[in-house]
Design a protein around this nucleic acid. Structure first.
Length: 424
RNA sequence: GGAGAGGUGGCUGAGUGGUCGAAAGCGACGGUUUGCUAAACCGUUGAAGGUGUAAGCCUUCCGCAGGUUCGAAUCCUGUCUUCUCCGCCA
């Protein structure tokens, strides 16, 4: 969430930002409600003051009659306060709905545009895209020939969008995880495996809405829990309601979790095979920083993402995400799109965002400067190290050989125990 | 899953209806004393929001959410969570 005061003081800028991001929010209504809220609050303050006077003088009442009279007045005031509070709650509820819909402000360099077509390519990976000397298969065909993924059995067990990884694909998943975790550990990230479920207020705090028609989130019936869509949720929630000392910052975490997504409304989009699935494993980076350090941290996370795909020797490009394609909490986002020979195009494999204090405000994650009074909101950032479904897809398609086998990337060899996947 | 006991300020820990945002100790910060350090002594010391040029003032907060009451850290209900014991289990 944005700061309320900031919104009121920068109405025009907030409004323009909403337009750029393709979000329809009645900012004027927000301002009107906010001033109403303030009025009610001032009224309540006066009444409260009177109520306090009454309760303080009641003990000194000389006669039982005087005491009863004061009690009566106290009761009266209390009822008035209750009525006022009722009104204020109604205003607050409407205010909150609008407040939550207002997205984060946007980095001035982010390209302005309605959707991903406006994304700006800003970098390429070390490995160039090269034409294969044979007609490349896509990962679904490769998986079928090599018996690496069972989509049919996945559908039987849990429905479309679920799958079994099989045989060498399993080792490939574990190898990718091991490789990423080991790299991140050497870069000072604290390794974690996270809960795959989280409370709904943690979801909301990180900007995920557990309810509604368009929700990406699976909820557990009769509980306050949902399946996480990314380790970003539990990792961000780690510091919910906490205040940390400035000198522990920045905090860099890496989390391995399963990710569950309903993909509601995604039907019809290009989503063959592993590209868009309901469950996958992901190694996620997450950082808490001081405000002045978050831009540099974003570059660091981006560098880690590039390092991983450079090491895997998979061609990719980096795009600066356009305003209309940014999620609500993101101030700036870079997507890394790997070359996917099977489709002859780039496809998103990882992404990193600077959410500034947008998530931290909702989560109430703060830091304290030694010797100073008060606390400050942290900045939060997240970035994918490797999302297994799409990562494994990119490996399979880029490493396929003319004979139908798949080579194993050099950096994964220490973890797989084999250097080629083939069938006789 | 069952039984019991707790959750209070940076920490320990008092406080069972009335000036309690909260004793005391520790820690931290400032000062006095002092070759230096330490000790001793004195003082200051929670957060969020609102308002004001400022000093300040106001509201809210004793896990969280409700309730009772003129008045709640204190009583009631729900909830989360920690610990101990039992059961179950990987």
């Amino acid at each position: 969430m944005l700061d309320r005061k900031f919104i009121i003081e920068n109405l025009a800028a907030v409004q323009q930002n909403c337009v750029n991001r393709g979000v329809h929010v009645d900012v004027e209504r927000f301002a009107a409600l906010e001033s109403q809220r303030k009025e009610k609050q001032q009224l309540a303050e006066e009444l409260n003051r009177r109520a306090n006077e009454v309760s303080k003088t009641i003990g000194q009442a000389k006669t039982p009659e005087a005491r009863e009279a004061l009690k009566e007045e106290g009761k009266n005031v209390r009822e008035q306060v209750a009525a006022l509070k009722n009104e204020a709650d109604g205003i607050e509820a409407e205010l909150d709905v609008i407040h939550r819909a207002i997205p984060n402000m946007t980095h001035p360099d982010a390209p302005i545009g309605a959707d991903d077509l406006a994304n700006l390519e800003i970098a390429r990976g070390r490995t160039p895209v090269t034409e294969m000397e044979f007609k490349p298969l896509d990962h679904v065909e490769l998986a079928q020939k090599l018996d690496l993924i069972d989509f049919e059995a996945g559908a039987r067990v849990a429905g479309a969008g679920f799958y079994f990884l099989k045989n060498e694909a399993v080792m490939l998943e574990l190898a990718l995880e091991m490789y990423a975790m080991r790299l991140l550990r050497s870069e000072g990230f604290v390794l974690t495996t996270t809960p795959d479920l989280a409370r709904n207020d943690i979801l909301a705090g990180t900007g995920f809405n557990p309810r509604g028609n368009e929700t990406q989130i699976y909820s557990i019936e009769n509980t306050d829990l949902s399946l996480v869509a990314t380790a970003e949720i539990p990792l961000g929630g780690m510091l919910a309601g906490q205040t940390v000392d400035e000198d522990v910052l920045p905090l860099k975490f890496c989390g391995l979790s399963h990710c569950f997504r309903t993909e509601a409304g995604a039907a019809g989009r290009a989503s063959r095979g592993l590209y868009r699935v309901h469950q996958f494993s992901k190694v996620e980076m997450f950082a808490f920083t001081r405000p002045e350090d978050s831009e540099a941290m974003l570059m660091h996370l981006r560098a880690m993402e590039q390092r991983i795909f450079d090491d895997l020797k998979i061609p990719y490009r980096v795009v600066d995400t356009a305003t209309g394609d940014l999620g609500g909490p993101a101030y700036r986002k870079f997507d890394l799109e790997a070359w996917m020979p099977g489709r002859g195009d780039f496809g998103e494999v990882t992404s990193t965002s600077n959410c500034t204090d947008y998530q931290a405000r909702r989560l109430n994650a703060r830091y304290k400067i030694k010797g100073e009074k008060g606390t400050h909101l942290l900045h939060t950032l997240n970035g994918t190290a490797i999302a297994i479904s799409r990562g494994i897809l990119a490996v399979m398609e880029n490493y396929q050989q003319p004979d139908g086998s798949i080579r194993v990337p050099d950096v994964l060899l220490p973890y797989t125990g084999f250097d080629v996947i083939k069938r006789d």
